[in-house]
Each structure stands twice: as C-alpha cells, then as structure tokens.
C-alpha cells in the first residue's frame, strides 16, 4: 500500500500550467528525491500534496484514503482534511518556526493541542528527538537564538513529533549558508537510514544520489525521467536530464 498516491495532477496559476498530468506514488520506507531546474513545478507538487495549494484536477490519497478526487473533470476535496494532515509533515525552506515560542513549545504544542496526545509523552518524545538531533541543550531557547542549521533541525523535529507516515522536505538547505547545510543533510540521512518515508525536493545532487531509493527529474511540469539514483545519475537516458546534470558536474 503506497503512503502517498498522487494521480494525474493538474495545476495552473492563471495561464501558467505548472503541473501537467503528474502522478507520484510513494511506498512505505521509500526515500524519493525530486530534482529539476527552478520553475519546474517540484515545489508546487509538494505544496499540492500538503494542501497548501489546491489542485485543478487529479487524485490525492494517503494510505489509500482519498483526500481529493476528480468529479466531472474538477477536483473535489474531502470535507474534512484534518485526518489526512496527520499522515504527513512538511519541512519548509525557511523553517517557519514560531518565533514567540521556545524550541520545546514549537515541537510539543501541535501534538498536544491538535492531536490531543498526552503532554508528558509528547514532551518525552520531543526531548528524545531533540537529543537525537544534537539539540538537547537548546530546548529552552527561542528560534532567534539558534543558527539556521539548528533552526532547520528544530523544524524537522517539529514535523517528526507529529509522528507522520511521510515527511516532505521543500529544499531544506536552500536558505542555509553552505557551511551549515552539512548538519541538516546529516540529519535527513540518518532518517533515511531509519527508513522514514520521505519525499525530498533538493538541489544537492550528491546528497540525493546518496540517500534516495528513487530519483525523479522534473522539468516544465512533467516528470522527464525517474529511477534508481545510479541509473538517473550514472546512466542518464533523456537529453534534458543530461543537460541539467551537466551544470552540477564539477
């Protein structure tokens, strides 16, 4: 059973056709990286998967439960999306931590006040996750007191504390200084080794190659090529993909 099924997704912003009949299925324990030039629609795909953008047509299902289906060519959303939101977490490019709250409160509030979990258990889980990410001593700090890398790790912990079935990353290192990307990539890699189901939109090719079970190359709103990382990077089929990857060869 796939954790996420996106089928025949169509999305336009006015005249701009951003997603052209895209389908994406992610299985449990699978790590998928999406690469491609900016404007290719990869971030939009994540934003549609997390309901931050509404799709025009297509189907989105989590754990075989349909959140969006298409009736007479139009996308119809489920009345209550709350149960679906439990299934995924999203890590933003700009972290989007809540600046008025401590690290611990950033992590624990949603599980307690949205999922109504036991505060003690949530706190224990949060402390365990923060420890794992090397942030044990920063639980009482405010986001502004942390480095960018630390903030992004907190936002990963915040997403994990919801115990989602799948975790989306929207260019998680793009807003970071180069010397800080390593610590965030290390954490994601660690999650991959634990077989967390993840979809990662990224520009870090070496990283994508190292952690992914599958790599997707998107351009112009369509999936141009996908497959095992060693195939996409080592035995590239499509000319468009080759062109793109050439920019990253040094």
């Amino acid at each position: 059973m796939p954790v996420l099924s996106m089928t025949n997704i169509q999305k336009s912003f006015g005249e701009n056709h951003v997603l052209k009949d895209i389908s994406l299925h992610v299985d449990q324990r699978e790590v998928v990286s999406i690469i491609g030039p900016s404007g290719s629609g990869k971030s939009t795909l994540l934003r549609c998967a997390t309901f931050l953008e509404t799709i025009d047509a297509g189907e989105i299902a989590y754990m075989d439960q349909k959140a969006v289906q298409t009736v007479n060519g139009k996308a119809v959303y489920a009345k209550n999306l709350k149960p679906f939101r439990k299934d995924f977490g999203l890590v933003f490019q700009n972290f989007n931590l809540f600046p008025h709250r401590t690290v611990l409160k950033n992590v624990t509030d949603a599980p307690i006040s949205v999922l109504h979990r036991d505060p003690k258990e949530v706190k224990a889980l949060a402390e365990e996750l923060l420890g794992k990410m090397g942030l044990a001593d920063r639980a009482g700090a405010y986001p502004c007191e942390l480095s960018g890398g630390q903030q992004q790790r907190v936002s990963i912990v915040r997403a994990l504390a919801m115990q989602p079935k799948i975790l989306f990353f929207d260019e998680p290192t793009s807003a970071l200084d180069p010397e800080l990307t390593g610590e965030v990539l290390k954490v994601i890699k660690q999650l991959a080794e634990e077989h967390m189901t993840m979809v990662i939109v990224t520009h870090e090719m070496a990283f994508a190659r190292a952690v992914s079970d599958r790599v997707i190359f998107m351009d112009g709103g369509v999936i141009v090529e996908q497959g095992r990382p060693e195939d996409v990077f080592g035995d590239t089929q499509e000319e468009r993909t080759k062109q793109f990857l050439r920019h990253y060869e040094r």
Binding site: L52, F98, P99, H100, D109, V114
Partner: peptide, 30 residues
C-alpha cells in the same frame, strides 16, 4: 505577518481559530 507562519500552522493541523490565537495574535501584539 509572513505567510509562512500560516502555512506552518496549517500543515501542523491547527484550526483557523487556533492559528489566530496561538500563532498570529501573540506575534501581532508584539
């Protein structure tokens, strides 16, 4: 208020009312 604050709250499943009172209002007051 940056739109990211609303989006982060939405993805975490906060209701509109929760988002306003827990996330937006305290920062707006400041």
């Amino acid at each position: 208020m940056p739109v990211g604050q609303y989006e982060a709250a939405e993805v975490l499943g906060y209701t509109k009312v929760q988002t306003f009172f827990k996330i937006i209002l305290p920062q707006v007051i400041r």
